[in-house]
Amino acid sequence: MRLQLKQKSILPGFGLALGFTVLYLSLLVLIPLSATFLKASSLSGQQFWHIVSSHRAVASYKLSFGASGIAATINLFFGLIVAWVLVRYNFPGKRLFDSLVDLPFALPTAVAGIALTTIYAPNGWMGRFLAPLGIQTAYSRLGVVIALTFTGLPFVVRTVQPVLEDLDKEVEEAAASLGADRWQTIIKVLLPAVLPAALTGFSMAFARAVGEYGSVVFISGNMPLKTEITPLLIITKLEQYDYAGATAIAVVMLVASFALLLTINLLQAWSGGRLKRAHANELPETAEFEAAR
C-alpha cells in the first residue's frame, strides 16, 4: 500500500508552500535551537550537572518558577473576575478596559519594566504608600511577582472570555429552574465550563513569566541568590564569556518551556475537544443526512 502523505487536492502550490515553510522554520528556528543542544553536549554529564545544580542556579530557578507560579495564580483569580465582569456586566469605560487588557502584549517589556520600577520605588506612586507599611516592592522578590503579573495579565482573561461568551444562558436558567441557587450555579455549572480555558490561560501566563526578562530586570534589583531570575543568570554568564554555563542553563530553560508547551497543547485539546463535542450535537441535519434515512 502506498503511504499517502497528502490528500490530493486540485489547489496548486502545495509543494512550494510547504517547502518554503519548512525551510524557513528550519533555518530560523529548528537548526539554531538544536545548536544549543549540540553545544551543551560538549559538556560532560558531570560538568553539566555541576552548572545546573549550582547554588546560584537553583536559587534562580526557585525565584523564576516560584514568582511565576504566584503571578499566574494572581492572574487566574483576577483574570476570572475581569473576564466575568467584561462579558456579563455593563459599566462606563468597559470597552476601554477591554481593549487595554492586551496592553502587556503590546507594550515593550523594557518600557513596562522602567514604568513599574518607578511606580513601586520607595518614592513612587505606589511605593510611597507601601514603604511606610514596611513593604518593599521594588528591588525585592515582591517586585518580581508584580512585573510577572503584569506580563501574564491578558492570558487568563483572553482564554476565558470567549468561553463565557459562548456559554448559553439557558444552561444557567436550567440550573436555576432545577432549584440551584446562584452560588451553586456558579460553582457547579459555570466554573467547570470555564475550567479548561482558565487552566490553559494559567499555564500560558506561567510559561510566559518563566522566560520573561525585560520587565523584571529593572524592578528586581538583580542580587544573586536573592532576586536573580534564571534568564538574567544566563545573561550574566554570557557577559562573563562563560558560554558553557549559559548554554547549560539555557538547556534547562528550553526543556522547561517544551514541557510547558506540551502541557498547554494538551489543555487546549481538552478544552477544544469539549467545545467541539458540545457543538457537534447542535449541527443541523444536512440534506445529505436526510437522504441517508
Binding site: 490530493k8 486540485i10 445529505e288 443526512f289 437522504a291 441517508a292
Partner: peptide, 19 residues
Amino acid sequence: GPSGSGKTTLLRIIAGLEF
C-alpha cells in the same frame, strides 16, 4: 442517489475538481 453513493464524486471528477 443517497449520500455516499458517489454521485458528487462523479460530478467533481467530470469537473476536474477531483481526479
